[in-house]
């Protein structure tokens, strides 16, 4: 069983605001002083793949596909260390995340998947931590002409089917579809496991392929449907915080209630 997990390298989303430098002249956001990391939901997608591999062991081959301008071996090696079998890096200026919209990105990933050949299950995170668009997974399925199941909190392979627990606003539903399929994973699927020291060492020996736009026959940004006009800094919400106090903390709590009522807040 071939599982492909799509993973994006992003600047650490937990970094403070001043680390996201906006360059208006090039329409880029340049991260400063924060390390690249695996996009969080993509880690959840890899964890979902690993849990399938936990069951089927060597019958499962997990290939991680990552597309971007420059992909750090050190960052993506983490995916190999936790248990992916192979890494495919698709790199180059063409793949700069600021230049490609979700449709163009999905087209590039599909070209890479086709070059890889066989696949049974494709897993992707529900949205990237940088562009936050939440579309690539469904576009992959559309381009490949296979079913997509979104918002997965659990993914199990049963024979020729994949059974997915899918989040609803008021619970979840269990759905089943034939493989091959794309499953789009949410954080409820579980955090990615930690690699052991031995796994980290062994990861360095695992196969890594590096392709460029030509290798996958990708035409680039002409596929875009969206046009980025500009990046700008958000207006920080400036709450003029009115601090409420009292002789005791309990009184401060009582005063807060009175004040909110008087100001018509509640």
């Amino acid at each position: 069983m071939n599982i492909i997990v799509c993973i994006k390298q992003v600047p650490d989303p937990e970094g403070p605001q001043e680390c996201f430098l906006i360059k208006p002249e090039t329409m880029r956001v340049e991260p400063r002083g924060i390390p690249p990391v695996l996009s969080l939901f993509d880690e959840n997608a890899l964890e979902a793949a690993l849990r399938i591999k936990d069951v089927y062991k060597d019958e499962v081959k997990i290939t991680v596909v990552s597309i971007g301008k420059k992909i750090s071996n050190a960052v993506l090696q983490k995916a190999l260390a936790v248990g992916a079998d192979e890494l495919v890096k698709v790199e180059g200026e063409t793949f700069d995340s600021a230049c490609l919209d979700s449709f163009a990105t999905a087209t590039a990933i599909v070209a890479s998947i086709r070059k890889l050949g066989a696949y049974d299950l494709i897993l992707a995170g529900r949205q990237s931590a940088d562009c936050n668009a939440g579309q690539v997974g469904i576009f992959l399925a559309g381009l490949l002409g296979i079913p997509a199941v979104t918002l997965a909190r659990k993914v199990v392979v049963q024979g020729a089917h994949v059974v997915v627990e899918r989040l609803l606003s008021s619970g979840y539903e269990k759905v089943r579809t034939l493989l091959p399929a794309v499953v789009i994973v949410s954080n409820e699927a579980g955090e990615m496991r930690y690699p052991t020291m031995i796994q980290r060492m062994e990861a360095k020996k695992k196969p890594v392929k590096t392709w460029d736009a030509q290798d996958i026959g990708f035409e680039g940004a002409t596929l875009n449907r969206l046009v980025l006009r500009r990046f700008f800094a958000p207006e920080m919400r400036q709450g003029q915080c009115r601090l409420i106090d009292g002789e005791t903390l309990a009184e401060a709590g009582r005063n807060l209630a009175q004040r909110l009522r008087r100001d018509g807040v509640i």
């Binding site: 600047p11 989303p13 970094g15 996201f20 940088d130 936050n132 006009r229 990046f231 700008f232 958000p234």
Partner: peptide, 18 residues
């Protein structure tokens, strides 16, 4: 142009469409 937060809401982006 539609405005959306990107980079974990540290940056805003304005997009239009072709």
């Amino acid at each position: 142009c539609f405005i959306k937060p990107v980079y974990s809401s540290n940056v805003m982006a304005a997009y239009t469409m072709k």
